[in-house]
């Protein structure tokens, strides 16, 4: 698979480390009510869809950026690649 890095262009997926579902960006607030259950869901449960999947890839052998890759888990087709930083900002996770 080739991942079209937003800064570096097309890169072999071998240069990356895979983490999993991009929902992991949304780490629960540990101080909020019911945070224990939320953390159990966060750590262990996954949607694991057959089809479009937004997922986190880390460019370890490159610029060490985290990316959010939108990829189809049935065909392996990649339709979007964004910097995870931009996604997290847009979704209100970081400043």
């Amino acid at each position: 698979m080739i991942i079209n890095h937003p800064l570096l262009g097309p890169r072999d997926s071998q240069e990356f480390v895979y983490l999993g579902d991009a929902a992991l960006i949304h780490r629960p607030d540990g101080m909020a009510d019911g945070s224990l259950d939320k953390f159990i869901d966060y750590a262990y449960l996954r949607d694991n869809p057959a089809g479009e999947h937004r997922e986190l890839w880390y460019h370890e052998q490159g610029d060490r950026s985290w990316l959010v890759v939108t990829r189809n888990t049935v065909t392996h087709e990649i339709t979007a690649v964004e910097l995870a930083r931009d996604v997290a900002r847009r979704e209100g996770r970081s400043k």
Binding site: M1, S13, Q14, Y18, G20, D21, N48, A50, H53, E55, R71, T73, V74, T75, H76
Partner: peptide
């Protein structure tokens, strides 16, 4: 292979 997939085929690496 190390990434989520439902395709019954893998990649060359």
């Amino acid at each position: 292979d190390g990434y989520n997939t439902y395709a019954q085929r893998g990649n060359l690496p």
